[in-house]
Computed example of a mutant assay.
Amino acid sequence: MPKRLRLTRRFPVALTNDAYRMLQRFAEDAGITPDEALCFLFEHFHSVTHAENLTARLRLFKAELEARKV
């Protein structure tokens, strides 16, 4: 029997406009809510990301982070 989807943990989250639009688009395309989309992405994180690409993208993001905060 599949696990029941119980959204028991809540946390305030801040997103950029681009990230928010991508989340909304992903959820809409998948036919699920944004909450369900986030659950899916984090529960299946290792299977929906490519480890080498993730590391490279994270390195780029961190390098640009200070400039993006201004």
Rank of each mutant, 00 (worst) to 15 (best):
F26Y: 08
E52C: 06
R21M: 09
E28D: 15
L65M: 05
D29A: 09
T55I: 11
P34S: 00
E43W: 06
T16N: 06
A27Q: 04
A27M: 02
F40E: 05
L7H: 12
V13S: 05
D29R: 04
L23Q: 04
F26H: 04
N17K: 15
R4C: 07
A19H: 02
A67G: 10
E64G: 09
F42N: 06
L65A: 07
R21H: 14
S47T: 14
A30N: 10
F61C: 11
L23M: 09
N53S: 15
I32F: 01
H44A: 03
E28S: 11
A56H: 11
M1L: 08
R25Q: 15
E64C: 10
E43C: 06
Q24S: 06
Y20G: 14
E52D: 12
F26P: 02
K69H: 05
M1Q: 10
Y20H: 13
T33F: 13
L15D: 09
K69G: 07
I32Q: 03
E43T: 13
V13M: 02
A27Y: 03
P34Y: 02
H46L: 12
R10G: 07
F45I: 04
M22T: 14
E52R: 14
F61V: 00
E52V: 04
A27P: 02
A56C: 06
D29C: 14
R9K: 10
R4Y: 10
K62M: 04
R57Q: 13
F61N: 05
P34R: 02
N17L: 11
A19P: 03
A14H: 12
E43M: 01
L54S: 13
P12Q: 08
R6G: 11
I32L: 00
A14E: 12
T49L: 10
I32P: 00
H50Y: 12
R10E: 11
A63W: 04
R6V: 15
R9Y: 04
P2F: 08
M22Y: 11
L65D: 10
R68C: 13
K3A: 13
F42V: 15
A14C: 06
A51S: 12
L7Y: 06
G31V: 01
F11V: 11
S47Y: 05
A27S: 00
P12N: 07
K69P: 03
D35P: 03
L54V: 09
K69A: 07
E66V: 15
R6N: 15
K62N: 15
N53Q: 13
A56M: 14
L15F: 06
P2N: 05
